[in-house]
Design a protein around this nucleic acid. Sequence first.
RNA 1: GGCCCCAUCGUCUAGCGGCCUAGGACACCGGCUUUUCACGCCGGCAACACGGGUUCGAAUCCCGUUGGGGUCACCA
Length: 489
Amino acid sequence: MNQPRPLRCRFAPSPTGHLHVGGARTALFNWLLARKAGGTFIVRIEDTDTERNVPGADRKIMEDLRWLGLTWDEGIDVGGPHGPYYQTRRLDLYAAAARRLIEAGRAYYAFDTQEELAAMRARAEAAKQTFRYPRPAVFPDRRDVERARAQGRPVVVRFAMPDEDITVPDEVMGDVTVGAGELDDFVILKADSIPTYHLANVVDDAAMEVNLVMRGQEFLAQTPRHIALQRALGYPTPRYAHLPLIMDLKGRKLSKRDGDVEVFSFRAHGYLPEALVNFIALLGWSPGADREKLTLAEMIELFGIERIGRTNARFDREKLLAFNTDYAAAATPERLMAAYEDYLSVAEASPIARARPDEATRRELLRVCRGFRTFPDIDAKAGFIFVDDAALAYDPAAVAKVLVKDGGYAILESLLPLLEKVEEWTTGRLEALLKGFCETRQVGLGKVAQPLRVAVSGGTISPAIGETLVLLGREKTLRRIRNALTLRS
RNA sequence: GGCCCCAUCGUCUAGCGGCCUAGGACACCGGCUUUUCACGCCGGCAACACGGGUUCGAAUCCCGUUGGGGUCACCA
């Protein structure tokens, strides 16, 4: 019996910034497959575009992956038997492969300048023809290369694309055949001797013994080139699985301009990684049976290439928000607290993060604000507690409505002396006092809580009034009520 | 434009010839709950792109049309 090879798959991002949700999904699916099959998940950095590389981006990507709960067995940071895992540190490998192809007559040197190439393309377009690089009848030799260099011309290596149909046996899309002559001779080694994506990718997948390539569908049309390269180099062709794309709500390709689609951005905006990862998993994959809420462990159990769809998905933030709300409500206090600490550590705009309240207060905040959708909701609802009394901004509309029109000032005036007499500043005691006050006055609690809320927060939104006053503390509460009263003119 | 891929509620999707008067979730609409906001609860609206076939029978298979997407770089 032929034993199936242990699965080896990888996630190979370019270090251009934080991890994007599309990349996150690719990484997640590869990870899921590896974990399910007991295989190996590799992370390597494809940094062959030296112009676009962003220093430190590899670190950010690693941090984002780990925040999502994804870990890798081989690759950057953790090492492994097939390193280094940065392509710019493996240039000799690609040069050797290019040399082999040239010697075998499967690749050749070319010396066109960008301007010449552009002119050829322009001519083809003017003639309404598809541009294909014109392969020379005789490949240039060493002396031609030297001559070109002497003339200051760029020297690249192009792969002589074989003239034959190539079928990609894709496990998501099915067999996809690209006809002979559709693909032209593409560059595999750039003028600066750095390989293009195609060569580096193929060489590394072979060297790292990757036997399943799962990536975005934008690469499907490139795969025949990769297969041709593998054949010319004598490499085995891995299994392929191309994922449908993630689009924005309008159906356009998701780009950073559409807003924050970086994993880190969701982290900084107070989302839980388990909610994000669950939501992303459902973009292009479904466990079936009307199941939706899944832990990573459950996803591993249920995941399979057979259940990956073929239609592009749109990234619907509303649904993500709903997932986050549910996850936050269902999380254990410990888990929620840990996630909240993480949020406070990265949320620079949060007034609560800046005020650094003690742990008991943070815990209390989580409790009194329960029902929040994302952590910034806590800032919006309870942030006023942490600003200086003098800096508290009163919302003119709230003041006009609640304090003036609805008679809030009068309520505050009668309430202030009662509150000043309260010794035991607790939720129970304060709520009892307010209830008693309402009963003797024959008014609803809203009539009393709202003026207090405005006086103490500047607006109409806060946690329950008793909890709000306790969190604020006796001194601040009384001071703010007195300040509010001075607003009356 | 050439080539390739795709097509179920507004969105993510279930459905792999009869179980579908098409199921779930989000959004939306209505109601309830309520000291504010949010949460929550109940109910409702809502889709097989179109046209041909195949078949006793089609959302499910085939062809075409339309629509959408991807790709045609010394970017990945």
